[in-house]
Structures are given as structure tokens and as C-alpha cells.
């Protein structure tokens, strides 16, 4: 609501006291940060730090134990058309009988209009996205015949043709070749130049400084959030990539086992 009445508020993503304890996924404790629009943002942390859990919670795929998320100042359900999501490559079955072109066109599907046919514009945008990612020649291939890098490009093309304002990407650089990484970075720079926001889960500390203007570091709790220049320092990296807090994981296990509420009944955050 705030963003409608106040056009100067350019918040892309607000995460408020978010705690997640979900099955065997890494837990998140009271995560709290805000990100501005038009930035390239990296979410960093070691394995098992809950980066992907955070991404999935933001995308509404996991229910948090407490806290809430706002995108563009509003709950997810109001802004779905303005966001594009690039899930982890491993989240789908690549033997599914579908061609590259069909996957990319999925970006143009509207949730309430799954019955009709795609318009000419939709098809053009999909073709353009294929070109942008340099996979036009693969358009009629079956997706099982692609390399890891090509599969990632397909996912990215699907997101690009959505023409969203915010792009959420879950580890787009895992298992891709150098050429693909370069292509993806080029596209991300282009999108940022158009004023789009890119929020990406990333695992490589070395390239992070070069790729992102903004960094969020996690290790089941928030370590830091700020511009790369401010927060990319040895101290933060050490506490993020150092060992986890044993007491946190101890209590996290207990919460999981008992399915225990992390907020008292009757008390809510929002």
C-alpha cells in the first residue's frame, strides 16, 4: 500500500523477522533486511546456510514460521506479474518431453489465461529471448539434449521474456560453462541498465565482488546487508563462512522435531 501512495519509496524487497524451519532444509533465524530497486544483488553464504531456503520463502514456496516478505512494497500475490523467477536447474525433470522453444514460451503464460492460445507478441518475445541468450539454433531441440550451460540459458530466456521488474535467480551459475556465465552476466548488466532489479543466490565468493553492487550475507542468520564496498570485508566473510552457531542449530532441531511455533499463539508480526 505504501508504495502506491508514495512513489519515491523504491523498495524492491523487504524481509521482516523471517524465521524458517522447514523439514530438513537449513533453518533461517529472524532475517531482517531491505533492498532497493535497480540494483544487482547477491545473496551469499556457505552450503547449508539457507540461501536457497530464503529464496524459496520469498517466492512463497515455503511457509515461514514467523515474519513476512514484501516485494515492491506489497505482498507477493499482488505483484506476481512483475517478478520473474529462475529456479535451480535441478528442480525440474530434464527428460520431460518438451522442446526448448516451448519452455521459453512458458514465460509468457498468464496464470488466469492458461486456456487460450499464445498471441503473436508472446511468440515474438520468446523468440527474442532465445536470440538474446544465443540459443535460437536449439529452439526445436528436446531439452534432454542440452548441456548444463544451455539448460541454464533456457531457464533464463524463459524469465527474460516475462518482461518483469525484478528477477529472482537461484544459483544460475552452478554447473555452467564459462561462455554461459559470461552471457548471463552480460544480460544481467543489460537488465540492470534498464533499471531492473536482479536478486541472485550465488555461491562463489571470488566473483561476487565483481558481479554485484549489493550483497546480503547469510549463515542461517543475517550476517550483513549493504553495498558491496561497505560489507565485502574479511570480518563479514569470516563470520558468514565460519562455523554455524551450535546453539542455534540445537534449538532449530528442537523446533523442527516438536513442530514448535517460534511466536506465541495470538502474537503475529505484521
Amino acid at each position: 500500500m505504501a508504495s502506491k501512495s508514495n512513489p519515491h519509496n523504491n523498495s524492491a524487497l523487504q524481509v521482516h523477522s523471517l524465521s524458517v524451519f522447514y523439514g530438513d532444509k537449513p533453518a533461517l533465524w529472524e532475517i531482517d533486511f531491505e533492498l532497493k530497486q535497480g540494483k544487482k544483488i547477491g545473496i551469499l553464504g556457505p552450503n547449508g546456510s539457507g540461501k536457497s531456503t530464503l529464496m524459496k520463502t520469498i517466492m512463497g514456496l515455503i511457509k515461514p514460521a514467523s515474519g513476512y516478505v514484501k516485494i515492491l512494497g506489497e505482498p507477493l500475490s499482488n505483484v506476481r506479474s512483475k517478478i520473474a523467477y529462475v529456479p535451480q536447474k535441478e528442480s525440474v525433470d530434464w527428460d520431460f518431453p518438451i522442446t526448448v522453444k516451448e519452455v521459453v514460451q512458458m514465460g509468457r503464460y498468464k496464470p488466469n489465461k492458461l486456456f487460450g492460445r499464445l498471441s503473436k507478441l508472446d511468440k515474438e518475445l520468446a523468440t527474442k529471448a532465445l536470440e538474446q541468450l544465443k540459443i535460437s539454433d536449439l529452439a526445436d531441440r528436446h531439452i534432454a539434449q542440452l548441456s548444463g550451460g544451455q539448460q541454464q540459458r533456457v531457464f533464463l530466456a524463459r524469465a527474460i521474456c516475462q518482461e518483469a521488474d525484478i528477477y529472482f535467480m537461484d544459483e544460475p551459475f552452478t554447473g555452467v560453462d564459462a561462455a554461459t556465465e559470461e552471457t548471463i552476466i552480460g544480460i544481467i548488466d543489460e537488465l540492470a541498465a534498464e533499471g531492473k532489479t536482479i536478486i541472485m543466490v550465488h555461491h562463489d565468493l571470488n566473483s561476487a565482488q565483481e558481479y554485484f553492487d549489493h550483497i546480503v550475507m547469510l549463515n542461517t542468520r543475517l550476517i550483513c546487508c549493504g553495498s558491496t564496498a561497505e560489507v565485502y570485508n574479511q570480518e563479514n566473510i569470516k563470520s558468514a563462512f565460519g562455523s554455524q552457531l551450535t546453539i542455534l542449530s540445537e534449538i532449530g532441531n528442537k523446533i523442527n522435531e516438536l513442530n514448535y511455533p517460534v511466536r506465541e499463539a495470538g502474537e503475529s508480526d505484521s
Binding site: 523477522s17 524465521s19 529472524e30 514467523s66 534449538i251 528442537k254 523446533i255 516438536l258 514448535y260 511455533p261 517460534v262 511466536r263 506465541e264 502474537e267 508480526d269
Partner: peptide, 9 residues
């Protein structure tokens, strides 16, 4: 809020 709930476990 967190302490209010977790103090019991």
C-alpha cells in the same frame, strides 16, 4: 518475541 516463545523449550 523469539525469547517469549523459545524460553519454554
Amino acid at each position: 518475541p523469539s525469547a517469549e516463545s523459545l524460553e519454554h523449550i
